[in-house]
């Protein structure tokens, strides 16, 4: 014991310890840069780091890559962690209650991905209403010369857009749809001051007054299956739903039933409840657009994330304020 203490004191790295928490397949392009400034502790490093188990116990800062879960058990293994830097827009993969108990600060990707996700939401909505992907299939299969006229779509401009979650992403979605002369309304935990859009405290009421329902709120215990049978009924036959949040925000089984029965106009999904599993009933429908959880995946988003993470690592070690910190109230 004494010997090992002496040894670890001798070998204490000079650069600050930075613990990387990730699934083996998740990497970020700026890992090599981090190695030049910090003692990076990575369980999945290749070759393996022999002192990972030993040093990771003293790491005060964790960088969590993608939606890799951080459980209470993980925090037991890394008892010195004071701060977790997330790299996702959402934070449902963190055990936030455990973080709160231990006084651990948590950050998200902040605004790094917001433009891309908002763009994607609008792109999915136009695609569903104007049948872009379905029409593209129609042309590519050579059906145009034979059938001449393609099924008419529905207008985007002037539709009523209901936004679930008016955060970094939601207000960008609103701004974009406003340029299409769409009216905007929203639901969120609290009414936002300084926001000109009508607020609905109740998601069902928001759905009754919307043609396009865009889901871009965080997944929490309260928002799990926030889009349920009632909400879908209120959205109705001509309404469409766009999900760029998390799969479990929608009762997927119910939505699939509504789509099959034609009781809802259409849907655009970037996320699903059991990714990468996609309900097979959806694959045959022309009024749905399916995307493999990639609304954020552009080089520009990753560059913005890199800038945010590197500045936050630096801020943590120099005791400066963190950016994109999540309120753990």
């Amino acid at each position: 014991m004494a010997a090992s203490n002496t040894q670890s004191k001798e070998d204490t790295p000079t650069l600050p310890l930075l613990l990387i928490h990730r699934f083996p397949s998740f990497k970020l392009s700026f890992f090599p840069f981090l190695y030049t400034k910090y003692t990076v502790l990575d369980q999945h490093a290749d070759p393996p780091q022999t002192r990972f188990a030993d040093l990771s116990k003293s790491a005060r800062l964790m960088l969590c890559v993608g939606p890799t879960p951080v459980t209470s058990a993980d925090l037991d293994r890394y008892p010195a962690v004071e701060c977790i830097l997330g790299s996702c827009a959402g934070f449902d993969h963190f055990d936030l209650a455990a973080c709160r108990r231990r006084g651990i600060r948590v950050t998200s990707s902040g605004e790094a991905f917001s433009d891309d996700v908002a763009d994607y939401a609008v792109g999915l909505a136009i695609d569903v209403l104007r049948r872009v992907s379905a029409a593209n299939r129609f042309v590519r299969t050579g059906s145009w010369p034979a059938r001449k006229e393609y099924t008419l779509g529905s207008k985007v401009s002037g539709k009523r857009v209901g936004i679930l979650g008016l955060g970094n992403i939601g207000w960008r979605v609103a701004k974009r749809f406003e340029s299409f002369n769409c009216s905007i309304a929203y639901n969120s935990r609290k009414i936002k001051s300084q926001v000109p859009y009508p607020y609905y405290a109740n998601v069902t009421n928001l759905a009754s007054n919307s043609d396009i329902l865009v889901i871009c709120c965080a997944l929490t215990d309260e928002t799990y299956h926030v889009v349920n049978k009632d909400v879908l009924e209120k959205l109705g036959k001509t309404g469409i739903i766009i999900n760029v949040g998390r799969g479990s925000l929608i009762d997927e089984k119910e939505l699939v039933e509504f789509l099959i029965r034609g009781e809802i106009g259409g849907a655009g999904f970037d996320v699903f409840e059991h990714e990468p599993h996609v309900p097979k009933e959806l694959l045959a429908l022309d009024n749905v657009v399916l995307s493999p959880h990639k609304a954020v995946l552009t080089p520009e988003s990753f560059a913005a994330l890199e800038e945010l993470v590197i500045s936050n690592v630096d801020a943590f070690f120099s005791s400066k304020p963190l950016r994109a910190e999540i309120e753990l109230d």
Binding site: G123, R137, K155, T298
Partner: peptide, 22 residues
């Protein structure tokens, strides 16, 4: 409006590869 909407839809579909994703 419809033509302008579709122009933006095509920009998003091509750049973000929405139809390819689907």
């Amino acid at each position: 409006d419809d033509v302008a909407d579709l122009a933006i839809g095509l920009m998003l579909a091509v750049l973000r590869r929405i139809s390819e994703c689907d």
